[in-house]
Design a protein around this nucleic acid. Structure first.
Length: 308
DNA sequence: ACTTAACGTACAATCCAGCG
DNA sequence: CGCTGGATTGTACGTTAAGT
């Protein structure tokens, strides 16, 4: 049997893909899929992914791979809209045709946390290819998705803790909520601990255990993530943004920013306002090379159109 | 499982000077 | 205005031990 020009055996066949922003507090009820789904949450939020009664807080850029037959649900951040890019795919009739990757194996790592630009850009490029469906787009998209899956597999392999995380205690979730609600204030770990009724010692231990970061680190990272949004969406000076996030000293803000992001605040603003970069890595609404907040590709509808 | 307390160390935060 | 470097100070946090 001869394959069509845009089909290669072993490539994932994509059925649906999109880039959507869900309203604060909404969710996706418990379900079990017959195919694979890859989701990318580009920003850290307080959205929860629940897999077989285990909760995973998506408090930093995260990828989720859902395998066929896995019971799961989503509870989106009650305080802010939650954006995610998603793609459904299969590897033919049998699960055994899937490449031997841990992230595609039932019981494999459910959440991959990474702020790396490469997989993020690959995910967005995948959306673009599927939306425009140029010549041989199935093959291009399939190859791109396969490469992306290999990249994510390598992130899992490089990660020091690739086993499923423990469920997040409610105190940790409350503390993260407290940070978000008081992002504009100078926050101390003691204050944070008091807000959830724990001592700072226990809170620090628990934070490291469940989030991989100390409370102080988490506060800094969240402030810098918010600063990134403000740098891109407001024309206030870096100094003003630093003050608005509770930094008493803009000099200190410059350092923390560079430490977290690897570039200075001004470089960040210039870089992501650059049209070329914005095409590679769109931030916020309205600057993506494809329409945002919609399903970009649906194989079933495409086939219907072609048959007409 | 969690709290409390004590202690030492690392580093966060601040201040100031200065550069382009 | 944006950023860096040096010096200084305060405190966050890791550790340990004992207790509820």
């Amino acid at each position: 049997m001869e394959n069509q020009p845009d089909q290669i055996v072993g490539l994932p066949a994509i059925s649906v893909a999109g880039d959507i922003v869900k309203r604060a507090g909404t969710g996706l009820a418990e379900r079990t899929l017959h195919d694979y789904e890859l989701l990318y949450f580009p920003y850290g939020t307080r959205s929860l992914y629940v897999l077989e009664d285990h909760e995973f807080l998506l408090n930093e850029p995260s990828y989720i791979v859902t395998r066929p037959g896995e019971r799961h649900e989503y509870r989106y951040d009650p305080g802010q809209p939650s954006r995610h890019l998603f793609v459904h795919f299969t590897f033919g009739e049998a699960e055994s045709e899937a490449p031997p990757l841990r992230i595609l194996t039932k019981g494999g790592p459910p959440v991959i946390r990474s702020g790396d630009e490469l997989p993020a850009n690959m995910m967005k490029q995948l959306m673009l290819v599927l939306y425009r469906h140029p010549e041989n787009f199935r093959r291009r998209a399939g190859l791109l998705l396969l490469t992306l899956l290999e990249e994510l597999e390598s992130l899992v392999a490089d990660s020091p803790s690739d086993c499923p995380a423990d469920p997040i205690p409610s105190q940790i979730a409350k503390a993260l909520d407290y940070i978000d609600r008081n992002i504009g204030s100078p926050l101390s770990v003691d204050e944070l601990a008091a807000s959830v009724g724990w001592t700072h010692e226990h809170l620090s231990r628990s934070f490291v255990r469940y989030t991989g970061r100390s409370p102080r680190e988490t506060i800094s990272h969240r402030k810098i993530e918010r600063a990134c949004q403000l740098l891109l969406h407001e024309d206030r000076s870096v100094k003003e943004i630093a003050y608005s996030l509770g930094y008493a000293d803009e000099n200190y803000f410059y350092r923390v920013f560079k430490q977290v992001k690897g570039i200075t605040a001004l470089e960040y603003r210039r870089k992501y306002f650059n049209p070329w970069y914005s095409e590679l890595h769109p931030i916020g609404e309205g600057d993506a090379p494809y329409p945002q907040n919609r399903i970009l590709f649906n194989a079933a509808m495409l086939n219907d159109r072609q048959e007409q």
